[in-house]
Amino acid sequence: MKITKEEVEYVAHLARLEFTETEKVRLTTQLNDILMYMDKLNRVNTTGVEPMSHAIALINAFRQDVVWESLDHELSMANAPETKGQSFKVPKIID
């Protein structure tokens, strides 16, 4: 087993997703298949190979420190599921 149901639960929590018991079992099997397939990468010798995080290696893309006009307040909030006054509203936070 590459990944256990407990690990699936932990990863789901990290990703803020929830699954039913049936989904969890199914997902565990599917992820195991996929991760097993990934194992083939271990056959590649990557000693000293610099990881490639970008398709094209560019450097130093900047903008100047110039203030632009912000979005109209109404447009900033237009898509929000819930607002109060000028702010986005969210349910209470339980630490």
Binding site: N79, A80, P81, F88, P91, K92, I94
Partner: peptide
């Protein structure tokens, strides 16, 4: 579910949301 798009209506607290 904070700034745009779908938000579940069945949430009592932030984590649930």
């Amino acid at each position: 579910g904070v700034k745009y798009g779908y938000r579940s209506s069945k949430c009592r607290d932030l984590l649930e949301m």
